[in-house]
Computed example of a mutant assay.
Amino acid sequence: MVVRAFPVPTEPVSDPVPRKLGLWASERMQASAWRLAPGQDISARMHPQADGMFLIVRGQGEFQVFDGQEPEAAGSYVPSAHYPLDAPPKRPLPEPTRHRVEAGMVCMAPAGLFYGLVNSGEEQLVAVAVTASDTSGTAWTVR
């Protein structure tokens, strides 16, 4: 087994979309570093059979949990603009429950629940996203 330790990239980016960098992927887990400029978001997502979490490394934001109703089958939601694919008609999620987050906080969502992250601060937000592997796929939606 290979053990790795590496720094999370925190240097500012000015991309028009959030910047994602894969850190680790195995049969049991995957981890990515996200850098979001003010106003950018990680689109609402749901892993049908895997829990997910964000560790906020830098900045402030809003962790959104779409718990107003049970999600429908993954095929009834459309990928976000970051993942352009042919998809069925758009179907928005209910209003989310919003949680203020800042550096040092961990946000968790159980399998089957849509969640997302928004940079609501005035500086770059850096987060590490970790999910258990889920061979059933991921569903994204637009807000």
Rank of each mutant, 00 (worst) to 15 (best):
S32H: 10
I42D: 15
W24F: 08
L21Y: 04
S26Q: 01
D15R: 02
L85H: 08
V57M: 07
A33S: 08
S43G: 12
M53L: 14
R19C: 00
Q69W: 06
F54A: 10
Q49R: 13
H82P: 02
R28F: 05
Y77A: 08
M53K: 07
P16V: 00
G39R: 15
L55E: 10
S26R: 01
R28L: 07
A31T: 11
R45M: 15
V57S: 04
P18V: 00
D51Q: 09
V78H: 04
S32T: 10
D51R: 09
F54L: 12
E62P: 08
R45G: 14
I56V: 14
L23A: 05
D51P: 02
H47T: 15
L36N: 08
I56C: 05
S43A: 14
D67V: 11
Y83C: 04
A73P: 02
R58L: 13
Y77N: 07
D15N: 02
G22Y: 06
R45A: 15
R58G: 10
S76Y: 03
W24H: 11
I56E: 04
S80K: 01
L85I: 06
A81E: 08
Q30P: 04
P16G: 01
Y77Q: 05
A31D: 08
R35S: 11
S26C: 01
A25R: 09
G68H: 12
R19M: 00
R28M: 07
S80Y: 00
S76H: 04
P16L: 01
W34D: 09
P38W: 12
Q60E: 13
Y83Q: 03
L55D: 06
Q30T: 13
S26N: 01
F66I: 06
S43H: 14
G59T: 06
F63W: 03
E62K: 09
S76A: 05
S32D: 11
G52F: 02
R19N: 00
G75Q: 05
P71N: 10
A37Q: 15
L23S: 05
D67S: 10
V65D: 06
L23H: 05
V65E: 07
R19Q: 01
A87W: 01
E72H: 07
G61Q: 04
P18S: 00
L85K: 09
P48R: 13
P71L: 12
W34Q: 11
L23R: 04
Q64Y: 03
V78Q: 06
S32N: 13
P84D: 03
R45N: 15
H47R: 15
Q60T: 12
Q69I: 09
Q64V: 09
Q60H: 14
A50N: 07
Q60V: 11
P38T: 12
P48I: 12
G39N: 15
L23T: 05
A74T: 00
Q30S: 14
M46S: 15
A31W: 08
E27L: 06
D86R: 08
Q30R: 14
Q69S: 10
Q49N: 11
G75L: 05
Q60F: 14
A50Y: 03
W34S: 09
I56T: 08
V17R: 03
V65M: 08
E70L: 12
A33K: 00
A37T: 15
D15V: 04
P79H: 07
Q40Y: 14
D15A: 03
S32M: 13
D86N: 03
R35T: 06
L36Q: 09
G59E: 03
G61E: 03
Q30I: 11
Y77R: 08
S80W: 00
D51E: 12
S76D: 03
P79K: 05
D51C: 07
